[in-house]
Amino acid sequence: MKNNMKQILFALVLSISVLACKPEPRELGPRANQSEGINGTWVLTKIDQIDVNVELAFQESDTLLDVTQAMLTSAPMEISFDKTSKNFEITSGAGSEFFGNTMGSWEFDNDDYPSYLQLNNPFGPQIYSLIRPVRPQDAYLAIKYNKMCGSDRTVSYHLWFVRK
């Protein structure tokens, strides 16, 4: 009987401990508005080059290389997005060659859950994948530029901007 009491007591203490450790449910809060997040001016600060011909990579450096020093040899370009007018404007500088035109309109493929950013200009739309979300609290805007030759992707670049 003494042993049974000990076991019951132990089980009781254990249950209380487990329940005490259970995290309280938290609310996610309102969904971040990415149109709000991209609004403002961004400065190009980092460029990674992606080798699209690698079929078997063992480490990140097999497919991705930081080429910032080779490309940003002068004052970097800036890009501004206006959430109201949905217009963008580029201040030319190092890295401008990744963009077809210095101004036009912009849009997300999906305003609630965007996966790419589309820049429209007289030469047609240019598509840039979003590497990560761009919420109002995010310091970085990271997009991917695919360089095409016909229907073949020859190389890709990850363009990292910081909020100005």
């Binding site: 080798d51 290389l65 080779a70 490309m71 360089k147 020859t154």
Partner: peptide, 20 residues
């Protein structure tokens, strides 16, 4: 080189791209 050669001695990139 980086990017690696696509064929025996040919790259997929152009001279306006970065080569390492």
């Amino acid at each position: 080189s980086f990017p690696r050669r696509k064929n025996k001695d040919t790259l997929s990139i152009t001279p306006s791209d970065v080569i390492t």
